[in-house]
Design a protein around this nucleic acid. Structure first.
Lengths: 157, 157
DNA sequence: ATGCTTTCAAAGTCAAAGAAAGTCAATTGT
DNA sequence: ACAATTGACTTTCTTTGACTTTGAAAGCAT
């Protein structure tokens, strides 16, 4: 088992229970998991980034802390934001998958809808001779178009 | 006896027993069979491809893994048929829309799933400078990949 | 008490090392 | 010829540690 995953899980359990917000001590947590303190930063960067729906703030020095806040943007505004601001003319596969994971977790897409999107944007789908740039452009368009379809859900189009 | 066949059999036994899903370590498996790790990739490519009804995902780095999922053909063997026989290397937009309409009407896809597929394959999504042949090839791949995702619906991924 | 200075306790950064899987071309086997 | 096998090289993800930056509290001078 990866230590990163354990730490991720631990934090998510803390977040899940009560509040959408945790405060923790980097060094304590590192000691608890028996890893280097900077490992915590790694976990925050790879699993609690803004694009994954989390904000973090921290303070150094005596009595320092790290606070993690889960941002619960849902619904149409979020979709509109994704289409308008977040996704430009180019989208990597990793980023696409992250967005889809977020849609699924926040309930904006059902698991099978998310799987469909994921399939459409997967490397397997796009396994045709195309430059990486072109694929990224294609992904961006596809993602936007699908998000619009998702936003229209239930509106009988 | 070919080593590839042994590995194939081994994996299929794991899949057969309990779950429609196995997770394995490439290096361990290679060591177990006394072959080069890349041999595993060969087996996956030649015996566990999507068109043979399997999906694979993997992760590199520390604690990496390979996961193989058998796509079960519950009810809709139709989907398997579509993937295997009906859709070739090329698919027009009209044909794609016809297939999607059929999926919706027959209840194999919910309206919003159908909309998503439709969006992914629409002219709007594919509005990038590409030859028509290339787009048709792309459509075929995307459709197949999405159909597999659909076939796997409800199989907890 | 008020403002500097030192000191120490956090958290941050970054690059290097390590771990695992992917790719691909050359070789071997049937 | 075609399928299988191998190994060198690449890419991706994780873990660690040395060094930096920031903040707070204590010490000291006025």
């Amino acid at each position: 088992m990866r230590i990163s995953d354990s730490i991720e899980q631990f934090i998510k359990e803390m977040l899940g229970e009560d509040s959408p917000e945790v405060e923790l001590k980097r060094n304590e947590l590192a000691e608890y998991f028996g890893c280097a303190p900077s490992q915590i930063n790694y976990v925050l960067a790879t699993r609690f980034s803004p694009s994954q729906g989390y904000l973090t703030e921290s303070r150094r020095g005596g009595g320092g802390y790290i606070r993690i806040v889960r941002v619960v943007e849902t619904g149409p505004q979020k979709l509109a934001y994704l289409v308008r601001d977040r996704i430009g003319d180019s989208l990597s596969e990793e980023e696409a998958q992250r967005i889809i994971a977020h849609l699924r977790e926040s309930g904006m897409a059902t698991p099978s809808e998310a799987d469909l999107m994921s399939a459409a944007l997967s490397g397997r789908s796009l396994a045709v001779p195309l430059s990486p740039e072109m694929k990224a452009a294609l992904r961006a368009r596809m993602m936007k178009t699908m998000l619009l379809a998702l936003a229209n859900k239930g509106n009988g189009g």
